[in-house]
């Protein structure tokens, strides 16, 4: 299958990209790594008149230490995030989750910012970004603004990025010394998660002192299990204690029902996977 015809623009700076976006208006679509967009174009589920390719903007690529946060350029590939020692040390949950994105070939082309901006509720990066209180730096004609993860994910495939704006980088506050795990439930390899849980915990002397839990594919956006997080604090990192705290993981969620499982099944799965993720994160 071949995409419908489009005009192709390949800017080399964020400013050029923003002006190309302004010129094209509603008819433009931004392509990052294209690993989600190209299948959509080939199946002709979308047929934009203009494609603006961010692949030539070197400034959007790379990972840096910014004191209290790790900053990941939007066009950094999943593979580069996966291999990065700074991310591994200070944002282990991101390393664990990005390792589970699709397959090696997709991770070589697909980008960290592209996947987050695409905002597929079954995407593997949204829940970890939300759980870690990531901040999204968004550029527009009037300058840049920073949006908290809790405001970034708006709905299915919808984020706070406006039509004339671009995501340029994602700031992940450091969680140095925390344990982390991403527990993804699939039936076969290389599948979107039916449900997945990202957990990061700080353990002091066998007791959980802080916890973050993010839920993938449990609603139209990534979700945080704040009741589980609160219940975990002060608990020993034992199977019994974590099982009890994880029991509320499905509360307040609105998961889809489809051929892989109905909503009740997913709510149950969330409790099981939360227990596994938290225990693995705590080193149990």
């Amino acid at each position: 299958m071949i995409p419908a015809k489009f005009d192709y623009v390949a800017p080399t700076s964020v400013e050029e990209a923003l002006s190309a976006l302004a010129d094209a208006g509603d008819d433009a679509k931004v392509i990052a790594g294209g690993q989600s967009l190209l299948p959509v174009l080939r199946m002709r589920l979308n047929a934009p008149e203009v494609i603006i390719d961010l692949g030539r903007i070197d400034a959007l690529r790379g990972i840096r230490d910014d004191g209290d946060a790790i900053v990941i350029g939007a066009m950094t590939t999943h593979a580069d995030v996966q291999a990065d020692p700074l991310v591994r040390e200070h944002a282990t949950l991101i390393t664990k989750a990005v390792t589970e994105v699709a397959d090696p070939q997709i991770r070589h082309r697909g980008t960290f910012g592209g996947a987050l901006a695409h905002a597929d509720p079954a995407g593997d990066l949204g829940a970890p970004a939300l759980a870690l209180d990531a901040e999204f730096v968004i550029a527009g004609s009037g300058g840049t603004r920073t949006v908290a993860a809790s405001d970034f994910f708006v709905d299915l495939f919808t984020t706070a990025i406006e039509d004339d704006e671009l995501l340029t980088e994602v700031r992940i506050p450091k969680k140095t010394g925390w344990g982390a795990h991403y527990e993804k439930f699939v039936r076969v390899a290389h599948q979107w998660p039916i449900v997945a849980i990202g957990a990061a915990v700080k353990v002091d002397g066998g007791t959980i002192s802080e916890a973050r839990v993010g839920l993938t594919n449990m609603g139209s956006t990534p979700l945080r299990a704040t009741s589980v997080e609160q219940a975990l604090v002060g608990q020993p990192a034992t199977d019994e204690a974590v099982r009890a705290a994880a029991a509320s993981a499905g509360e307040g969620t609105n998961p889809p029902s489809d051929l892989n499982g109905d909503a009740d099944y997913r709510r149950h799965l969330a409790t099981v996977l939360t227990r596994r993720a938290v225990l693995a994160a705590a080193g149990g």
Partner: peptide
Amino acid sequence: RSVKSCNMLAVQAD
């Protein structure tokens, strides 16, 4: 690096 060539445009290989 390995990529799926059905999931990349020829112009992106420029």
